[in-house]
């Protein structure tokens, strides 16, 4: 994996190295990152035990409903959310829109999500993420896509799932695809690995790293459609390191209660008695969408490559 060395300072310290970029994601593990659209939401998320928040103008469910071009959020909104909480704040930029990313970096955001939830700005190239001091998280549907993003400098990966649906089926598909892709590497010799890299469009070096580790070389979260504590625990049992919850919390009847329950379910993902307890009496979950009911050209996961 490419190690970029960041910016050297006078006192012997180095800022923005890949180690500190990937390291923040390692600190988020076992946690829940929640989408928030106001400072008030951000405080609720923090009170519920979120390990980070994603600052947005509209949650994916609303982006889906309203249509039109979805862009980076207003810096004023992002700043108000950064001021409201002490946990890390993430924000989304469009795929390939490196200037939105530069703006987010200038705001001092802690993590940038180069996200398919927003309308892509470049249909061929993702952002070259290495030159940035701020770390990036990117979505994937399978191992090839994950390793391409890592080669571009992503310090964290998440499944794409299908955002704004409250339907976990796509996140499950993507997490299983990554797992299967990595399992397939075990026992391959170098020639076979190079061939596999060609088949799935993966950079060979990153694939070697995956084979050696038996997992992605960066932290891997689940995202896209998680709406209940059981959904979060399901993804954790499938082997992800943590979960993003987008529309699932603030589109539900009792956001604080549901958020707390999802946090507990992510920590105690393998303790069914805890899951039973926290799943009870949460009020209505978000309504949700069946994937086949969505017109093909409105599927967000198909954005990015």
């Amino acid at each position: 994996m490419a190690e970029r060395n960041g910016v050297r300072n006078g006192n012997g310290s180095v800022k923005g190295s890949f180690k500190v970029k990937a390291g923040l994601a390692q600190m988020l593990k076992g946690g829940v990152i929640m989408d928030v659209v106001t400072a008030e939401h951000a405080r609720i998320a923090q009170d519920a035990g979120a390990c980070a928040v994603m600052a947005l103008e509209r949650v994916p469910a609303d982006i889906r409903k309203e249509g039109g071009v979805a862009r980076m959020s207003d810096p004023e909104l992002i700043k108000s959310i950064m001021a409201a909480v002490t946990i890390p704040v993430m924000a989304k930029c469009r795929i390939g829109h490196f200037v939105e990313a530069q703006i987010l970096e200038a705001l001092g955001i802690d993590y940038i999500d180069e996200s398919e939830v927003l309308t892509p700005a470049d249909e061929e190239n993702h952002i070259d993420k290495h030159p940035f001091k701020v770390p990036f998280v990117c979505g994937c549907r399978d191992l090839g896509e994950a390793t391409r993003r890592i080669a571009e400098g992503a310090a964290m990966i998440r499944t794409k799932g299908e955002a704004g649906t409250g339907n976990v089926v796509e996140a499950v598909r993507h997490a299983r695809a990554v797992n299967a892709g990595i399992r397939k590497l075990q026992g391959m010799n170098h020639a076979e690995l190079v061939h596999e890299a060609k088949q799935i469009g993966a950079p060979v070096e990153v694939l070697i790293e995956c084979q050696k580790l038996g997992r992605l070389p960066v932290v891997n979260f689940a995202a896209g459609g998680i709406a209940t504590p059981a959904d979060a625990a399901l993804m954790m049992q499938l082997g992800v390191d943590g979960v993003f919850v987008g529309s699932g919390i603030f589109k539900s009847e009792d956001p604080l209660k549901r958020a707390k329950a999802i946090v507990a379910a992510t920590t105690y993902f393998d303790k069914s008695e805890v899951l039973a307890e926290v799943s009870a009496g949460l009020g209505k979950a978000m309504h949700g969408l069946e994937i086949p009911a969505i017109p093909k050209d409105e599927l967000l996961a198909a954005r990015g490559w």
Partner: peptide, 24 residues
């Protein structure tokens, strides 16, 4: 996060070279 850094540290009681400090 953009101020997170790595720096070599001298730690009392630890023999040998400096310790790689990763601050996040």
């Amino acid at each position: 996060q953009v101020d997170s850094f790595e720096a070599p540290l001298h730690i009392d009681g630890l023999n040998g070279k400096t310790f790689p400090g990763v601050f996040i």
